[in-house]
Design a protein around this nucleic acid. Structure first.
Lengths: 169, 169
DNA sequence: CTCTCTGCAAAGCCTTTGCACGGCA
DNA sequence: TGCCGTGCAAAGGCTTTGCAGAGAG
């Protein structure tokens, strides 16, 4: 992939800025809602804004709590349904780590990533490793499989106690 | 670890035969039950036998159905509790793939493995890849993490339609 | 005889759904 | 005004738990 540099921002196309990526996701959502005839309501805007404002990996409860700070009348089911909509439109990914909850993260454009999860402070880091992805493909081919997706989660704890505290979250 | 060969069976210690591994697991379970003061009941024996007889990755329903063929009076909760006991003793691993069900597999002695799952025929293959494990460790170290466990699942479908059929399971 | 185990049913937990009302377009 | 969206509450689906009776040691 080329490293075409944007002369205005200094950002390359291969790694667009956070802001540019969010703008693209908003456009994607808008066109999805248009094409599906979905309406823009106060609740959907509230949930969507809170979602984009977040750092991702939120549970439905997390998000609902945030949304209700500004908009106390929003219901449980609406958040569920709105997040499903965000996932269907491709701007959110639903994830299931080992706590039995659904979490939603902001989608990344054009590349997959996996997660490193601290079981002490609940931090969730994202990672990408091309070499591992390549080995996975190779392995699947050897076993006679065509891969469609994968799930790779590394659990452990931050080495530095300074940044790893139960109360940090 | 050495490659001492067993003169009787030709099996090396590093890769014990299936039968030898099962025998070791049974011993492990027995000593666990002894140490915890757990009793050997007809139901526990039935569930445990069926579990060891299986090829693993069974859901609780799968196992209960099997057990009830011989022993119709066994209850749901007993199977849950017995499988928890098997997991606690280290002879079973609880796994959660993407269907919301708990599955139990026969533990392997001294080595970790991951899974390749066919979303067409529901086949579950195990794999081990030292290179991937090494890269994981390296990656975690770079991110300042100490790994304790991981979950690596590859989803796809068998390339050969001959061996990949919905009705196969 | 004591203390654990079992089976049933109920309760938990999270997610999904049905339905009447409310509000976009 | 016609429909879609919302909120509430109930229903689902799987797992866990409480309890009285059964059974191992």
């Amino acid at each position: 992939m080329g490293q075409a540099t944007n002369s205005k921002t200094g950002q390359s196309k291969a790694a667009p800025s956070k802001g540019a990526e969010l703008a693209e996701l908003r456009r994607r959502l808008e066109s999805y809602m248009d094409s599906e005839g979905l309406r823009s309501t106060e609740q959907r805007r509230a949930v969507t804004e809170e979602f984009f404002r977040s750092k991702g990996h939120l549970t439905i409860d997390d998000l609902l709590a945030q949304v209700r700070k500004e908009n106390p009348k929003v219901g449980y089911a609406t958040v569920y349904r709105t997040l499903k909509m965000l996932a269907d439109s491709g701007v959110a990914n639903e994830r299931h780590f080992n706590d039995g909850l659904s979490r939603y993260e902001i989608a990344h454009l054009g590349h997959h990533h996996d997660h490193l999860i601290c079981t002490e402070c609940d931090a969730i880091l994202e990672f990408e490793d091309e070499e591992i992805e390549r080995l996975q493909e190779e392995l699947a081919r050897k076993k006679g499989f065509q891969l469609t997706r994968h799930k790779h989660e590394l659990y452990g704890h931050c080495i530095s106690p300074k940044y790893c505290r139960k109360d940090k979250k």
